[in-house]
Nucleic acid binder design. Sequence first.
RNA 1: CGCGGCGUGGAGCAGUGGUAGCUCGCCAGGCUCAUAACCUGGAGGUCGUAGGUUCAAAUCCUGCCGCCGCAACCA
Length: 523
Amino acid sequence: MPDRRRWFQTTAIVYPNSRPHIGTAFEKLGADVQGRYRRMEGYEVFFLMGNDENTVKVSKRAAELGLEVQAYCDDMAKQFRQVWDALDIQYDTFVQTSEPRHHRCAQKFIQQVYDNGYIRKDAYEGWYCDGCEAFKSERELAGGKCPLHANLEPVRRSEPCYFFELSKFQDWLLEYYDENPEFIQPESRRNEIIQLIKTEGLQDVNITRRGEDWGIRLPFDPEFTIYVWFDALLTYITGIGYGADEAEFAKWWPCDMHFIGKDITRFHCALWPAMLKAAGIAPPRRVFGHGFVYKKNEETGVLERFSKSLGNVVEPMEIVTKFSSEAFRYYFLRECPFPSDGEFGWARFAEVFNADLANNLGNLYSRVVTLVTKNYDGVLDGTAGQKPRAIEGCTLPTTVDSVRAHIEACRYNQALEAIWRQVLDPANQYADKQAPWKLVKTDKDAAKAVLFDLLEPLRATCILLKPFLPRSAETIYTSFNFATPWADVSFADAAEAQPLNEDLRVLAQLDAGKVKPLFPRIG
RNA sequence: CGCGGCGUGGAGCAGUGGUAGCUCGCCAGGCUCAUAACCUGGAGGUCGUAGGUUCAAAUCCUGCCGCCGCAACCA
Protein backbone atom coordinates (compact mmCIF):
# COMPACT_ATOMS: atom_id res chain seq x y z
CA MET A 1 0.00 0.00 0.00
CA PRO A 2 1.41 3.41 -0.94
CA ASP A 3 1.45 5.85 1.96
CA ARG A 4 -0.59 8.45 0.12
CA ARG A 5 -3.11 7.33 -2.45
CA ARG A 6 -2.36 9.06 -5.71
CA TRP A 7 -4.01 8.81 -9.09
CA PHE A 8 -2.36 9.74 -12.36
CA GLN A 9 -4.51 9.70 -15.47
CA THR A 10 -4.18 10.90 -19.03
CA THR A 11 -6.30 11.30 -22.12
CA ALA A 12 -5.11 10.74 -25.66
CA ILE A 13 -2.96 13.45 -27.16
CA VAL A 14 -4.94 15.06 -29.95
CA TYR A 15 -3.88 16.11 -33.45
CA PRO A 16 -4.78 19.77 -33.68
CA ASN A 17 -5.46 19.78 -37.40
CA SER A 18 -9.07 20.71 -36.78
CA ARG A 19 -11.17 21.93 -33.88
CA PRO A 20 -12.34 19.32 -31.36
CA HIS A 21 -15.65 17.62 -32.01
CA ILE A 22 -18.03 15.78 -29.76
CA GLY A 23 -16.15 12.50 -29.95
CA THR A 24 -12.97 14.08 -28.65
CA ALA A 25 -14.94 15.72 -25.88
CA PHE A 26 -16.49 12.37 -24.92
CA GLU A 27 -13.11 11.03 -23.94
CA LYS A 28 -12.15 14.09 -21.90
CA LEU A 29 -15.48 13.92 -20.13
CA GLY A 30 -15.11 10.28 -19.17
CA ALA A 31 -11.68 10.98 -17.79
CA ASP A 32 -12.91 14.07 -15.97
CA VAL A 33 -15.56 12.12 -14.08
CA GLN A 34 -12.96 9.60 -12.99
CA GLY A 35 -10.58 12.34 -11.88
CA ARG A 36 -13.24 14.20 -9.94
CA TYR A 37 -14.41 11.00 -8.30
CA ARG A 38 -10.89 10.08 -7.23
CA ARG A 39 -10.40 13.54 -5.77
CA MET A 40 -13.56 13.15 -3.73
CA GLU A 41 -12.33 9.80 -2.52
CA GLY A 42 -9.19 11.38 -1.12
CA TYR A 43 -6.72 10.63 -3.88
CA GLU A 44 -4.14 13.13 -4.90
CA VAL A 45 -4.92 13.41 -8.60
CA PHE A 46 -2.91 14.48 -11.59
CA PHE A 47 -4.76 14.69 -14.90
CA LEU A 48 -2.66 15.19 -18.02
CA MET A 49 -3.95 16.25 -21.41
CA GLY A 50 -2.31 17.69 -24.49
CA ASN A 51 -1.97 18.18 -28.20
CA ASP A 52 0.19 16.17 -30.56
CA GLU A 53 1.81 18.76 -32.78
CA ASN A 54 4.94 17.22 -34.26
CA THR A 55 3.23 15.84 -37.30
CA VAL A 56 3.44 16.55 -40.96
CA LYS A 57 -0.31 17.00 -41.13
CA VAL A 58 -0.15 19.86 -38.69
CA SER A 59 2.64 21.63 -40.51
CA LYS A 60 0.73 21.22 -43.77
CA ARG A 61 -2.42 22.60 -42.26
CA ALA A 62 -0.52 25.60 -40.95
CA ALA A 63 0.99 26.17 -44.37
CA GLU A 64 -2.46 26.08 -45.95
CA LEU A 65 -3.53 28.82 -43.60
CA GLY A 66 -0.35 30.76 -44.22
CA LEU A 67 0.73 30.56 -40.59
CA GLU A 68 3.94 29.74 -38.81
CA VAL A 69 3.58 26.19 -37.54
CA GLN A 70 4.31 27.17 -33.97
CA ALA A 71 1.83 30.04 -34.07
CA TYR A 72 -0.78 27.74 -35.52
CA CYS A 73 -0.17 25.12 -32.81
CA ASP A 74 -0.34 27.67 -30.04
CA ASP A 75 -3.58 29.05 -31.36
CA MET A 76 -5.13 25.60 -31.66
CA ALA A 77 -3.98 24.69 -28.17
CA LYS A 78 -5.71 27.81 -26.92
CA GLN A 79 -8.89 26.91 -28.75
CA PHE A 80 -8.83 23.35 -27.44
CA ARG A 81 -8.34 24.54 -23.90
CA GLN A 82 -11.22 26.93 -24.24
CA VAL A 83 -13.47 24.04 -25.13
CA TRP A 84 -12.21 21.87 -22.28
CA ASP A 85 -12.65 24.73 -19.87
CA ALA A 86 -16.17 25.35 -21.09
CA LEU A 87 -16.96 21.71 -20.38
CA ASP A 88 -15.45 21.96 -16.90
CA ILE A 89 -12.75 19.44 -17.62
CA GLN A 90 -10.56 19.64 -14.55
CA TYR A 91 -7.09 18.91 -15.87
CA ASP A 92 -3.78 19.68 -14.21
CA THR A 93 -1.50 20.09 -17.17
CA PHE A 94 -1.82 20.55 -20.89
CA VAL A 95 1.23 19.43 -22.85
CA GLN A 96 2.04 20.70 -26.31
CA THR A 97 4.53 18.38 -27.94
CA SER A 98 6.22 21.33 -29.63
CA GLU A 99 7.35 22.64 -26.24
CA PRO A 100 11.14 22.69 -25.74
CA ARG A 101 10.76 20.73 -22.52
CA HIS A 102 8.99 17.91 -24.34
CA HIS A 103 11.63 17.93 -27.07
CA ARG A 104 14.46 17.66 -24.58
CA CYS A 105 12.87 14.90 -22.56
CA ALA A 106 11.79 12.93 -25.61
CA GLN A 107 15.33 13.05 -26.93
CA LYS A 108 16.64 11.82 -23.63
CA PHE A 109 14.21 8.93 -23.75
CA ILE A 110 15.03 7.83 -27.26
CA GLN A 111 18.72 8.07 -26.54
CA GLN A 112 18.20 5.75 -23.59
CA VAL A 113 16.38 3.20 -25.74
CA TYR A 114 19.14 3.49 -28.34
CA ASP A 115 21.83 2.98 -25.70
CA ASN A 116 19.95 -0.06 -24.43
CA GLY A 117 20.22 -1.55 -27.89
CA TYR A 118 16.61 -1.60 -29.04
CA ILE A 119 16.96 0.76 -31.97
CA ARG A 120 18.78 -0.24 -35.13
CA LYS A 121 19.47 1.52 -38.37
CA ASP A 122 18.18 -0.26 -41.41
CA ALA A 123 16.43 0.39 -44.68
CA TYR A 124 12.74 0.86 -45.08
CA GLU A 125 11.48 -0.44 -48.37
CA GLY A 126 8.04 0.11 -49.75
CA TRP A 127 5.79 1.72 -52.32
CA TYR A 128 6.21 5.43 -52.52
CA CYS A 129 3.75 7.90 -53.98
CA ASP A 130 5.42 10.98 -55.44
CA GLY A 131 2.14 12.87 -55.22
CA CYS A 132 1.81 12.34 -51.48
CA GLU A 133 5.56 12.31 -50.92
CA ALA A 134 5.01 9.39 -48.61
CA PHE A 135 5.20 5.63 -48.40
CA LYS A 136 1.93 3.79 -48.87
CA SER A 137 0.96 0.47 -47.37
CA GLU A 138 -0.15 -2.46 -49.49
CA ARG A 139 -3.65 -1.87 -48.26
CA GLU A 140 -3.71 1.75 -49.22
CA LEU A 141 -2.64 0.77 -52.69
CA ALA A 142 -5.41 -1.73 -53.20
CA GLY A 143 -5.82 -1.60 -56.94
CA GLY A 144 -2.17 -0.78 -57.48
CA LYS A 145 -2.58 3.00 -57.39
CA CYS A 146 -2.57 5.66 -54.74
CA PRO A 147 -6.22 6.58 -54.16
CA LEU A 148 -5.31 10.26 -54.09
CA HIS A 149 -3.06 10.23 -57.13
CA ALA A 150 -4.45 7.65 -59.53
CA ASN A 151 -2.55 9.27 -62.38
CA LEU A 152 0.80 8.46 -60.82
CA GLU A 153 2.48 5.10 -60.64
CA PRO A 154 3.74 4.21 -57.14
CA VAL A 155 7.43 3.46 -57.20
CA ARG A 156 9.44 0.96 -55.19
CA ARG A 157 11.76 2.87 -52.97
CA SER A 158 14.16 2.15 -50.19
CA GLU A 159 15.57 4.59 -47.71
CA PRO A 160 17.52 4.49 -44.50
CA CYS A 161 15.64 4.75 -41.25
CA TYR A 162 15.68 3.63 -37.63
CA PHE A 163 13.62 0.75 -36.36
CA PHE A 164 12.40 0.18 -32.85
CA GLU A 165 12.65 -3.54 -32.19
CA LEU A 166 9.11 -4.08 -31.04
CA SER A 167 9.16 -7.74 -32.01
CA LYS A 168 11.55 -8.47 -29.15
CA PHE A 169 8.82 -7.59 -26.67
CA GLN A 170 6.04 -9.80 -27.93
CA ASP A 171 6.42 -12.57 -25.37
CA TRP A 172 6.97 -10.14 -22.55
CA LEU A 173 3.79 -8.26 -23.50
CA LEU A 174 1.62 -11.35 -23.62
CA GLU A 175 2.97 -12.30 -20.23
CA TYR A 176 2.25 -8.85 -18.87
CA TYR A 177 -1.35 -9.00 -20.13
CA ASP A 178 -1.71 -12.38 -18.53
CA GLU A 179 -0.39 -11.30 -15.17
CA ASN A 180 -2.35 -8.03 -15.19
CA PRO A 181 -5.90 -8.79 -16.27
CA GLU A 182 -6.90 -5.19 -15.55
CA PHE A 183 -4.30 -3.70 -17.87
CA ILE A 184 -6.53 -3.45 -20.92
CA GLN A 185 -10.12 -2.44 -20.33
CA PRO A 186 -12.85 -3.17 -21.14
CA GLU A 187 -12.40 -6.90 -21.52
CA SER A 188 -13.60 -7.03 -25.12
CA ARG A 189 -10.73 -4.76 -26.08
CA ARG A 190 -8.29 -6.88 -24.16
CA ASN A 191 -9.36 -10.00 -26.03
CA GLU A 192 -9.03 -8.14 -29.28
CA ILE A 193 -5.44 -7.10 -28.65
CA ILE A 194 -4.32 -10.47 -27.38
CA GLN A 195 -5.89 -12.13 -30.38
CA LEU A 196 -4.29 -9.63 -32.69
CA ILE A 197 -0.80 -10.17 -31.33
CA LYS A 198 -1.18 -13.91 -31.29
CA THR A 199 -2.36 -14.09 -34.87
CA GLU A 200 -0.47 -11.27 -36.57
CA GLY A 201 2.50 -10.88 -34.29
CA LEU A 202 4.44 -7.69 -33.68
CA GLN A 203 6.81 -6.24 -36.20
CA ASP A 204 9.66 -3.82 -35.70
CA VAL A 205 8.50 -0.31 -36.44
CA ASN A 206 10.10 2.51 -38.33
CA ILE A 207 10.22 5.38 -35.87
CA THR A 208 11.90 8.05 -37.95
CA ARG A 209 11.23 10.34 -40.87
CA ARG A 210 13.80 12.02 -43.06
CA GLY A 211 13.81 15.45 -44.58
CA GLU A 212 11.22 17.05 -42.31
CA ASP A 213 11.79 20.45 -40.78
CA TRP A 214 9.04 20.20 -38.18
CA GLY A 215 9.46 17.66 -35.40
CA ILE A 216 11.95 16.35 -32.87
CA ARG A 217 15.48 15.59 -34.06
CA LEU A 218 16.97 12.20 -33.40
CA PRO A 219 19.78 12.99 -30.91
CA PHE A 220 22.15 10.42 -32.38
CA ASP A 221 21.43 11.27 -36.02
CA PRO A 222 20.01 14.78 -36.56
CA GLU A 223 19.22 14.08 -40.18
CA PHE A 224 16.13 12.30 -38.89
CA THR A 225 13.07 13.36 -36.93
CA ILE A 226 11.15 11.12 -34.58
CA TYR A 227 7.97 9.70 -36.02
CA VAL A 228 4.89 11.12 -34.41
CA TRP A 229 3.69 8.05 -32.52
CA PHE A 230 6.92 7.44 -30.74
CA ASP A 231 7.06 11.08 -29.78
CA ALA A 232 3.40 11.58 -28.83
CA LEU A 233 3.26 8.71 -26.37
CA LEU A 234 6.18 10.20 -24.52
CA THR A 235 3.98 13.08 -23.48
CA TYR A 236 2.66 10.85 -20.75
CA ILE A 237 6.02 10.89 -19.02
CA THR A 238 7.54 14.17 -20.13
CA GLY A 239 4.45 15.92 -18.78
CA ILE A 240 5.16 14.68 -15.25
CA GLY A 241 8.84 15.42 -15.14
CA TYR A 242 10.65 12.59 -16.91
CA GLY A 243 14.13 13.74 -17.76
CA ALA A 244 13.67 17.00 -15.90
CA ASP A 245 12.33 16.45 -12.40
CA GLU A 246 12.95 12.88 -11.34
CA ALA A 247 11.28 13.22 -7.95
CA GLU A 248 8.09 14.43 -9.55
CA PHE A 249 8.27 11.67 -12.13
CA ALA A 250 8.78 9.02 -9.47
CA LYS A 251 5.83 10.38 -7.58
CA TRP A 252 3.33 9.94 -10.42
CA TRP A 253 4.60 7.11 -12.59
CA PRO A 254 3.34 4.45 -13.34
CA CYS A 255 0.17 5.85 -14.77
CA ASP A 256 -3.05 4.59 -13.21
CA MET A 257 -5.21 5.04 -16.28
CA HIS A 258 -4.66 6.05 -19.88
CA PHE A 259 -7.99 7.00 -21.46
CA ILE A 260 -7.91 6.43 -25.20
CA GLY A 261 -10.20 5.78 -28.14
CA LYS A 262 -10.69 2.18 -29.15
CA ASP A 263 -8.90 2.83 -32.44
CA ILE A 264 -5.53 3.40 -30.83
CA THR A 265 -5.48 0.57 -28.31
CA ARG A 266 -2.66 -1.13 -30.22
CA PHE A 267 -0.32 1.77 -29.76
CA HIS A 268 -1.05 2.09 -26.07
CA CYS A 269 -1.21 -1.58 -25.21
CA ALA A 270 1.68 -2.89 -27.27
CA LEU A 271 4.03 -0.19 -28.55
CA TRP A 272 3.88 2.03 -25.46
CA PRO A 273 4.67 -0.55 -22.75
CA ALA A 274 7.40 -1.97 -24.98
CA MET A 275 8.97 1.45 -25.42
CA LEU A 276 8.97 1.94 -21.68
CA LYS A 277 10.40 -1.49 -21.06
CA ALA A 278 13.14 -0.75 -23.57
CA ALA A 279 14.03 2.37 -21.60
CA GLY A 280 13.92 0.53 -18.29
CA ILE A 281 10.69 2.14 -17.09
CA ALA A 282 7.67 0.35 -15.61
CA PRO A 283 4.60 -0.07 -17.83
CA PRO A 284 1.36 1.81 -17.10
CA ARG A 285 -1.21 0.12 -14.85
CA ARG A 286 -4.32 0.44 -16.99
CA VAL A 287 -5.42 1.47 -20.45
CA PHE A 288 -9.08 2.12 -21.04
CA GLY A 289 -10.26 2.00 -24.65
CA HIS A 290 -13.57 3.83 -24.73
CA GLY A 291 -16.15 3.66 -27.49
CA PHE A 292 -17.06 6.18 -30.15
CA VAL A 293 -19.94 8.55 -30.49
CA TYR A 294 -21.75 8.47 -33.79
CA LYS A 295 -24.03 11.08 -35.25
CA LYS A 296 -27.60 10.07 -35.74
CA ASN A 297 -28.84 11.43 -39.02
CA GLU A 298 -32.15 13.02 -37.96
CA GLU A 299 -33.76 12.43 -41.33
CA THR A 300 -32.68 8.93 -42.18
CA GLY A 301 -32.00 7.59 -38.68
CA VAL A 302 -28.69 6.23 -39.92
CA LEU A 303 -25.61 6.36 -37.71
CA GLU A 304 -22.68 8.16 -39.24
CA ARG A 305 -19.15 8.73 -38.19
CA PHE A 306 -18.41 12.40 -37.65
CA SER A 307 -16.60 13.53 -40.73
CA LYS A 308 -15.83 16.73 -42.51
CA SER A 309 -16.78 15.30 -45.86
CA LEU A 310 -20.25 14.37 -44.62
CA GLY A 311 -20.54 17.81 -43.08
CA ASN A 312 -22.08 16.41 -39.92
CA VAL A 313 -19.53 17.57 -37.39
CA VAL A 314 -21.12 18.90 -34.23
CA GLU A 315 -18.88 21.05 -32.12
CA PRO A 316 -19.16 20.84 -28.34
CA MET A 317 -19.50 24.59 -28.07
CA GLU A 318 -22.65 24.49 -30.16
CA ILE A 319 -24.38 22.44 -27.48
CA VAL A 320 -22.84 24.30 -24.58
CA THR A 321 -23.95 27.61 -26.00
CA LYS A 322 -27.47 26.45 -26.82
CA PHE A 323 -27.97 24.65 -23.53
CA SER A 324 -25.24 24.29 -20.94
CA SER A 325 -22.11 22.36 -20.13
CA GLU A 326 -24.11 20.41 -17.56
CA ALA A 327 -26.63 19.36 -20.18
CA PHE A 328 -23.77 18.32 -22.43
CA ARG A 329 -22.11 16.31 -19.69
CA TYR A 330 -25.31 14.60 -18.66
CA TYR A 331 -26.32 13.55 -22.14
CA PHE A 332 -23.06 11.89 -23.05
CA LEU A 333 -22.45 10.34 -19.68
CA ARG A 334 -25.94 8.96 -19.34
CA GLU A 335 -26.75 8.11 -22.91
CA CYS A 336 -23.48 6.85 -24.35
CA PRO A 337 -21.95 3.85 -22.58
CA PHE A 338 -18.31 4.82 -22.10
CA PRO A 339 -16.89 1.33 -22.72
CA SER A 340 -18.84 0.90 -25.95
CA ASP A 341 -20.37 3.12 -28.60
CA GLY A 342 -23.03 5.76 -28.31
CA GLU A 343 -24.88 8.17 -30.53
CA PHE A 344 -25.81 11.80 -30.65
CA GLY A 345 -29.03 13.23 -32.04
CA TRP A 346 -30.72 16.53 -31.24
CA ALA A 347 -34.15 14.98 -30.68
CA ARG A 348 -32.77 12.42 -28.27
CA PHE A 349 -30.78 15.12 -26.53
CA ALA A 350 -33.92 17.08 -25.74
CA GLU A 351 -35.76 13.95 -24.67
CA VAL A 352 -33.10 12.89 -22.19
CA PHE A 353 -32.68 16.39 -20.84
CA ASN A 354 -36.38 16.88 -20.22
CA ALA A 355 -37.05 13.47 -18.76
CA ASP A 356 -34.14 13.23 -16.36
CA LEU A 357 -32.93 16.73 -15.60
CA ALA A 358 -36.00 18.93 -15.95
CA ASN A 359 -38.86 16.64 -14.95
CA ASN A 360 -37.14 14.44 -12.47
CA LEU A 361 -34.18 16.00 -10.65
CA GLY A 362 -34.96 19.64 -11.33
CA ASN A 363 -38.60 19.28 -10.52
CA LEU A 364 -37.99 17.36 -7.30
CA TYR A 365 -35.65 20.10 -6.17
CA SER A 366 -38.07 22.83 -6.98
CA ARG A 367 -41.14 21.20 -5.41
CA VAL A 368 -39.27 20.55 -2.16
CA VAL A 369 -37.92 24.08 -1.92
CA THR A 370 -41.33 25.55 -2.60
CA LEU A 371 -43.04 23.43 0.02
CA VAL A 372 -40.51 24.30 2.69
CA THR A 373 -40.59 27.97 1.82
CA LYS A 374 -44.34 28.35 1.52
CA ASN A 375 -45.33 26.42 4.61
CA TYR A 376 -42.41 26.84 6.97
CA ASP A 377 -40.86 30.10 5.91
CA GLY A 378 -37.83 28.19 4.71
CA VAL A 379 -36.89 26.71 8.10
CA LEU A 380 -37.76 23.28 9.44
CA ASP A 381 -37.85 23.96 13.19
CA GLY A 382 -36.61 21.26 15.48
CA THR A 383 -34.69 19.31 12.88
CA ALA A 384 -31.30 20.08 14.39
CA GLY A 385 -29.62 16.85 15.45
CA GLN A 386 -32.39 14.79 13.86
CA LYS A 387 -32.00 11.99 11.35
CA PRO A 388 -34.44 11.57 8.50
CA ARG A 389 -36.44 8.36 8.14
CA ALA A 390 -35.55 6.00 5.34
CA ILE A 391 -37.63 6.24 2.21
CA GLU A 392 -39.14 3.07 0.84
CA GLY A 393 -37.17 1.70 -2.09
CA CYS A 394 -34.20 3.91 -1.35
CA THR A 395 -31.35 2.17 0.44
CA LEU A 396 -28.53 4.63 0.17
CA PRO A 397 -25.61 2.50 1.39
CA THR A 398 -26.34 -0.09 -1.28
CA THR A 399 -26.78 2.51 -4.00
CA VAL A 400 -23.60 4.32 -3.05
CA ASP A 401 -21.65 1.08 -3.27
CA SER A 402 -22.98 0.28 -6.69
CA VAL A 403 -22.46 3.80 -8.01
CA ARG A 404 -18.91 3.63 -6.78
CA ALA A 405 -18.31 0.30 -8.51
CA HIS A 406 -19.80 1.59 -11.74
CA ILE A 407 -17.64 4.70 -11.74
CA GLU A 408 -14.48 2.75 -11.04
CA ALA A 409 -15.26 0.55 -14.04
CA CYS A 410 -16.12 3.64 -16.12
CA ARG A 411 -19.71 2.49 -16.52
CA TYR A 412 -20.90 6.04 -16.05
CA ASN A 413 -24.25 5.49 -17.69
CA GLN A 414 -25.06 2.75 -15.24
CA ALA A 415 -23.94 4.85 -12.32
CA LEU A 416 -26.35 7.59 -13.35
CA GLU A 417 -29.14 5.14 -13.97
CA ALA A 418 -28.71 3.78 -10.47
CA ILE A 419 -28.98 7.27 -8.98
CA TRP A 420 -32.17 8.01 -10.88
CA ARG A 421 -33.87 4.66 -10.33
CA GLN A 422 -32.76 4.03 -6.77
CA VAL A 423 -32.76 7.49 -5.26
CA LEU A 424 -34.73 10.06 -7.25
CA ASP A 425 -37.64 7.88 -8.35
CA PRO A 426 -38.33 6.62 -4.82
CA ALA A 427 -38.16 10.22 -3.59
CA ASN A 428 -40.77 11.41 -6.07
CA GLN A 429 -42.94 8.42 -5.21
CA TYR A 430 -42.59 9.12 -1.51
CA ALA A 431 -43.61 12.73 -2.02
CA ASP A 432 -46.69 11.66 -3.88
CA LYS A 433 -47.67 9.02 -1.37
CA GLN A 434 -47.22 11.22 1.71
CA ALA A 435 -48.63 14.32 -0.01
CA PRO A 436 -47.11 16.83 2.42
CA TRP A 437 -49.01 19.67 0.66
CA LYS A 438 -52.19 18.01 1.86
CA LEU A 439 -50.84 16.82 5.19
CA VAL A 440 -49.72 20.29 6.15
CA LYS A 441 -53.34 21.32 6.51
CA THR A 442 -54.12 18.69 9.11
CA ASP A 443 -50.81 17.93 10.78
CA LYS A 444 -48.12 20.47 10.23
CA ASP A 445 -45.45 18.57 12.18
CA ALA A 446 -46.03 15.36 10.26
CA ALA A 447 -45.73 17.22 6.97
CA LYS A 448 -42.54 18.83 8.20
CA ALA A 449 -41.06 15.41 8.95
CA VAL A 450 -41.92 14.25 5.44
CA LEU A 451 -40.14 17.21 3.90
CA PHE A 452 -37.17 16.58 6.11
CA ASP A 453 -37.10 12.98 4.86
CA LEU A 454 -37.28 14.17 1.27
CA LEU A 455 -34.19 16.30 1.64
CA GLU A 456 -32.06 13.27 2.33
CA PRO A 457 -32.26 11.69 -1.14
CA LEU A 458 -31.67 15.12 -2.62
CA ARG A 459 -28.57 15.59 -0.50
CA ALA A 460 -27.23 12.15 -1.40
CA THR A 461 -27.93 12.75 -5.07
CA CYS A 462 -25.89 15.94 -5.06
CA ILE A 463 -22.91 14.13 -3.61
CA LEU A 464 -23.17 11.21 -6.01
CA LEU A 465 -23.59 13.61 -8.91
CA LYS A 466 -20.64 15.77 -7.99
CA PRO A 467 -18.23 14.11 -10.45
CA PHE A 468 -20.84 14.21 -13.21
CA LEU A 469 -22.58 17.57 -12.85
CA PRO A 470 -20.28 19.64 -10.67
CA ARG A 471 -22.19 22.90 -11.09
CA SER A 472 -25.77 21.74 -10.72
CA ALA A 473 -24.94 19.46 -7.83
CA GLU A 474 -23.31 22.35 -6.04
CA THR A 475 -26.22 24.67 -6.71
CA ILE A 476 -28.71 22.23 -5.23
CA TYR A 477 -26.52 21.24 -2.31
CA THR A 478 -25.74 24.78 -1.30
CA SER A 479 -29.42 25.68 -1.46
CA PHE A 480 -29.62 24.14 2.00
CA ASN A 481 -27.50 24.37 5.13
CA PHE A 482 -26.29 20.76 5.05
CA ALA A 483 -23.69 19.93 7.69
CA THR A 484 -20.66 19.04 5.55
CA PRO A 485 -19.20 21.85 3.44
CA TRP A 486 -19.54 21.18 -0.29
CA ALA A 487 -15.80 21.12 -0.84
CA ASP A 488 -15.40 18.31 1.68
CA VAL A 489 -18.15 15.89 0.72
CA SER A 490 -17.26 12.30 -0.13
CA PHE A 491 -19.26 9.27 -1.20
CA ALA A 492 -19.20 7.98 2.37
CA ASP A 493 -21.23 11.05 3.38
CA ALA A 494 -23.90 10.13 0.85
CA ALA A 495 -24.45 6.74 2.41
CA GLU A 496 -25.05 7.98 5.93
CA ALA A 497 -27.36 10.78 7.11
CA GLN A 498 -25.39 13.71 8.57
CA PRO A 499 -27.22 15.33 11.50
CA LEU A 500 -27.26 19.13 11.50
CA ASN A 501 -26.17 21.41 14.31
CA GLU A 502 -28.91 23.83 13.45
CA ASP A 503 -32.38 23.53 11.97
CA LEU A 504 -32.53 22.79 8.31
CA ARG A 505 -33.16 25.84 6.19
CA VAL A 506 -33.38 26.92 2.59
CA LEU A 507 -30.54 29.18 1.53
CA ALA A 508 -31.35 29.35 -2.15
CA GLN A 509 -32.08 32.67 -3.74
CA LEU A 510 -35.80 32.78 -4.35
CA ASP A 511 -38.00 34.72 -6.64
CA ALA A 512 -41.52 35.05 -5.21
CA GLY A 513 -40.98 31.93 -3.11
CA LYS A 514 -39.78 29.86 -6.05
CA VAL A 515 -36.39 28.72 -7.27
CA LYS A 516 -35.31 29.55 -10.74
CA PRO A 517 -35.55 26.30 -12.75
CA LEU A 518 -32.11 24.71 -12.86
CA PHE A 519 -32.93 22.86 -16.06
CA PRO A 520 -35.57 24.71 -18.05
CA ARG A 521 -37.43 22.28 -20.26
CA ILE A 522 -36.37 22.14 -23.89
CA GLY A 523 -38.99 22.56 -26.54
C1' C B 1 -12.26 -19.48 -43.54
C1' G B 2 -8.15 -11.97 -41.57
C1' C B 3 -9.77 -10.05 -36.48
C1' G B 4 -13.78 -8.27 -33.58
C1' G B 5 -18.76 -6.47 -32.32
C1' C B 6 -24.05 -6.36 -32.85
C1' G B 7 -29.35 -8.23 -34.01
C1' U B 8 -34.74 -8.25 -27.25
C1' G B 9 -42.22 -4.78 -27.51
C1' G B 10 -42.80 1.98 -31.91
C1' A B 11 -37.47 4.21 -30.44
C1' G B 12 -33.09 3.42 -27.19
C1' C B 13 -31.18 -0.20 -23.94
C1' A B 14 -30.51 -4.02 -19.45
C1' G B 15 -30.68 -8.99 -18.86
C1' U B 16 -24.88 -15.19 -19.77
C1' G B 17 -29.71 -21.32 -17.65
C1' G B 18 -35.16 -21.24 -13.92
C1' U B 19 -41.89 -16.85 -13.93
C1' A B 20 -39.04 -11.36 -20.15
C1' G B 21 -37.19 -5.83 -17.27
C1' C B 22 -35.97 -0.31 -17.61
C1' U B 23 -36.29 4.72 -19.93
C1' C B 24 -38.84 7.50 -23.72
C1' G B 25 -43.31 7.40 -26.59
C1' C B 26 -48.68 5.81 -26.60
C1' C B 27 -53.70 4.95 -23.89
C1' A B 28 -56.66 5.45 -19.32
C1' G B 29 -57.03 7.27 -14.41
C1' G B 30 -55.22 10.08 -9.98
C1' C B 31 -53.04 14.41 -7.89
C1' U B 32 -52.35 19.74 -7.96
C1' C B 33 -46.59 21.03 -3.92
C1' A B 34 -43.71 21.46 -8.45
C1' U B 35 -40.36 23.43 -14.67
C1' A B 36 -48.30 21.42 -18.42
C1' A B 37 -44.03 18.80 -14.06
C1' C B 38 -45.40 14.26 -10.33
C1' C B 39 -47.99 9.32 -9.10
C1' U B 40 -50.87 4.71 -10.46
C1' G B 41 -52.57 1.27 -14.04
C1' G B 42 -52.73 -0.56 -19.22
C1' A B 43 -51.73 -1.96 -24.40
C1' G B 44 -47.47 -3.63 -27.06
C1' G B 45 -42.12 -8.66 -27.55
C1' U B 46 -43.02 -16.63 -29.89
C1' C B 47 -35.66 -12.11 -27.40
C1' G B 48 -32.69 -12.12 -36.29
C1' U B 49 -33.30 -17.26 -38.24
C1' A B 50 -32.82 -22.88 -38.50
C1' G B 51 -31.23 -26.77 -35.68
C1' G B 52 -28.73 -28.92 -31.20
C1' U B 53 -27.50 -29.63 -25.68
C1' U B 54 -30.71 -29.53 -21.12
C1' C B 55 -35.95 -31.18 -16.68
C1' A B 56 -35.37 -25.90 -18.15
C1' A B 57 -32.22 -21.17 -23.20
C1' A B 58 -32.82 -14.38 -24.78
C1' U B 59 -28.86 -16.75 -21.90
C1' C B 60 -24.56 -22.61 -23.88
C1' C B 61 -23.13 -25.08 -29.01
C1' U B 62 -23.51 -25.24 -34.60
C1' G B 63 -25.15 -23.45 -39.42
C1' C B 64 -27.41 -19.40 -42.00
C1' C B 65 -29.22 -14.19 -42.84
C1' G B 66 -28.61 -9.01 -41.90
C1' C B 67 -25.93 -4.60 -39.89
C1' C B 68 -21.30 -2.39 -38.18
C1' G B 69 -16.11 -1.47 -36.72
C1' C B 70 -10.66 -2.47 -37.45
C1' A B 71 -7.28 -0.02 -43.61
C1' A B 72 -8.73 6.00 -46.01
C1' C B 73 -9.18 14.71 -43.82
C1' C B 74 -11.75 11.68 -39.11
C1' A B 75 -11.34 9.92 -31.63
